[in-house]
Design a protein around this nucleic acid. Structure first.
Length: 422
RNA sequence: GGGGGGGUUCCCGAGCGGUCAAAGGGAACAGACUGUAAAUCUGUCGGCAAACGCCUACGGAGGUUCGAGUCCUCCCCCCCCCA
C-alpha cells in the first residue's frame, strides 16, 4: 500500500494507529476489516452535519479520522448531511432540534467544504477524498417509492431497540427523527453501491445508525461493509469538547480567532494533554511519548506543542506562529505582541474627556455588557496598561496610550489591544 | 377522543397573589493560591443607571386584581394512562 504524502506511517495499519491514538471505540468486525484494509485501497466515510457554516472543535475528531484513513492510502469520503440536517439526528439529543431551511443548509455546506479541504486532499486519484451532499440522492425521493424500496428492510422492533430511540422513549421522539436512522443507513447503502464505500466511521453515538447502514448494505447490495466508532470526547472536567467561555470553539478564523483557538489548546486540563496529542495532532508516537513523560509545570511545554500543532493543522503555520508569539508576549513577557487580538480607534477618541473604559471593554468584545464590565472592575479583574483599575468611571485618554496602543486585560487570560490610529 | 401531569433565567430545578430578577445545584466568569493546569476558599452570574430606580423576563394571547411566575379563559407544545 502506498502512502501518498511520501511519509512512512509509524504504524503498519490504519486500525493499529487508530487504536494507539485513542480513536478506536467499537468496530463491527475488526478482523475482517483489518484484512480488508491491508489488502486494498478502501473507501470510508463520515457524515458531518451542516448545522452551522463552520465546523467546530467537536468535529475535529472525525476529521482526523478521515485524515488518518487517507494517510494510510485509503479513500475518505466526507458526507455533508444536507438532507439529514432537515430531519435532525435524535442521537445524543434530548429534544427535537430546530429545523433548518434549505437555504441555510446550502450556505453552511459551502463553509464546511472549504474547511474540510484544508485537512483532506480532494481529487480524482485512488485515495483522493470526495465530498458529497446526501441531499443529492435523498431529496427527490417520493415517499411511497422510498417506503417500498427502503422502508421494507427496516424492522420497527429492531429500531426501537436502538439506543438513540430507546433513550427518547421517555421524553418523546417525533416520527421525523425516528426516520433519521433510515436515511443514514440509506446513505451508506448508496455510497457502497455507487462508490464502493466499505466503511463508515463516526462518534459512538452513531453506532446504531451505522449498524443499520451495514444491515441495509447487506440486504440490498449483498455487500459486507464495516463500522468503526470513536469515543465520545469529553474533557477531563466532564464538559463536551470544544466549549470555551465564549461558547463553541470554531475552526473558522472569523468566528474563533487563531489566537483564541491556540489559547483553547494551551489551556486544556493536564489530564487531557496526552490524549489530545494523540487524537488531534499528527505527531509521530515517539515524539508524543516523549511529551507524555513531562511532569508538573513542565506539562505546559506539552500543551504548547499541542496548541501549536493543532493550530497549524487548522489555521496554517503562519497563524500558529503568530498566536504563539502573541501568547509569549502576553504570558512570558517581552517578545512580539503585534498579533494580540486588537481593534483600531482614531486618536480623536482619546482627546478631551476621552473614551469610557466601560465602552472600550464592551466594544472590544471583552465584556458582554457594561454591567459585567463594572462587576469585573469591582473584582479587580481589569487592567489597563498593566495597572489594575478600580475606578469604574475611568476615561481612557492620551495618558493611557503607550507605544501607540492601549492594552486591556481582563483576568489573566483575556487580552485586547486598542491600536490608536494617528 | 377521554383522564392525569407538565412548560421558569445557559442547563437541571424550587417557587404561599405582594418582601421575585425569582431558592438550590451545575456550568461559567473573577479574586486568592498556582504552572495560562487541577483541587480548594471567596465573590459574581438579565439590561440600563454612580445611585434612587427604570426596563425586559417565568410557553403564547387575553382577563381578574391596587398588585400575577403565582388566580381565570382561550390557544400552542411535551409526557403518562385509557380508547
Amino acid at each position: 500500500m502506498d502512502t501518498e504524502n511520501g511519509k512512512t506511517p509509524a504504524f503498519d495499519s490504519f486500525i493499529e494507529e487508530m487504536k494507539w491514538r485513542g480513536f478506536f471505540e467499537q468496530c463491527t468486525d475488526e478482523k475482517s476489516l483489518t484484512e480488508l484494509l491491508a489488502g486494498e485501497t478502501t473507501t470510508g466515510y463520515i457524515g458531518f452535519d451542516p448545522t452551522a457554516d463552520s465546523l467546530h472543535v467537536g468535529s475535529l475528531l472525525p476529521i482526523m479520522g478521515l485524515v488518518h484513513l487517507q494517510n494510510h492510502g485509503h479513500k475518505p469520503i466526507a458526507i455533508v448531511g444536507g438532507a439529514t440536517a432537515m430531519v435532525g439526528d435524535p442521537s445524543g439529543r434530548t429534544e427535537l432540534r430546530n429545523m433548518m431551511t434549505l437555504e441555510t443548509i446550502d450556505k453552511n455546506l459551502e463553509g464546511i467544504k472549504e474547511q474540510l479541504s484544508r485537512f483532506i486532499r480532494f481529487g480524482t486519484g485512488a485515495s483522493d477524498g470526495m465530498m458529497l451532499n446526501n441531499a443529492d440522492w435523498l431529496k427527490d425521493h417520493l415517499y411511497l417509492e422510498f417506503l417500498r424500496d427502503v422502508g421494507r428492510y427496516f424492522s420497527v422492533n429492531q429500531m426501537l431497540t436502538r439506543d438513540s430511540v430507546k433513550s427518547r422513549m421517555e421524553t418523546g421522539l417525533s416520527f421525523i427523527e425516528f426516520n433519521y436512522m433510515i436515511l443514514q443507513a440509506y446513505d451508506f447503502m448508496v455510497l457502497n453501491r455507487d462508490h464502493g464505500c466499505r466503511l463508515q466511521m463516526g462518534g459512538n453515538d452513531q453506532w446504531g445508525n451505522i449498524c443499520s447502514g451495514i444491515d441495509l448494505c447487506r440486504r440490498v447490495n449483498q455487500a459486507e461493509v464495516f463500522g468503526l466508532t470513536f469515543p465520545l470526547m469529553m474533557t477531563a472536567s466532564g464538559v463536551k469538547m470544544g466549549k470555551s467561555a465564549e461558547g463553541a470553539v470554531w475552526l473558522d478564523a472569523a468566528r474563533t480567532s487563531p489566537y483564541d483557538f491556540y489559547q483553547y489548546w494551551v489551556n486544556v486540563d493536564d489530564r487531557d494533554v496526552s490524549r489530545f496529542l494523540r487524537l488531534y495532532t499528527l505527531m509521530p508516537p515517539t515524539e508524543i511519548e516523549k511529551l507524555e513523560k513531562l511532569q508538573g509545570a513542565e506539562i505546559r511545554e506539552a500543551k504548547k506543542v499541542l496548541a501549536r500543532e493543532v493550530t497549524t493543522l487548522v489555521h496554517g503555520k503562519g497563524e500558529a506562529a503568530a498566536a504563539e508569539k502573541a501568547a509569549k508576549a502576553l504570558f512570558s513577557g517581552g517578545g512580539d505582541d503585534s498579533t494580540v487580538p486588537s481593534s483600531e480607534r482614531p486618536a480623536a477618541d482619546f482627546g478631551g474627556a476621552g473614551l469610557s473604559l466601560l465602552d472600550a471593554l464592551t466594544d472590544a468584545g471583552l465584556m458582554k455588557s457594561k454591567g459585567e464590565a463594572r462587576r469585573m472592575i469591582r473584582q479587580k479583574a481589569v487592567r489597563v496598561g498593566g495597572e489594575v483599575i478600580e475606578d469604574e468611571t475611568l476615561q481612557l485618554t492620551g495618558e493611557h496610550i503607550q507605544d501607540g496602543k492601549i492594552t486591556l486585560q481582563v483576568g489573566k487570560k483575556r487580552h485586547h489591544h486598542i491600536l490608536v490610529a494617528s
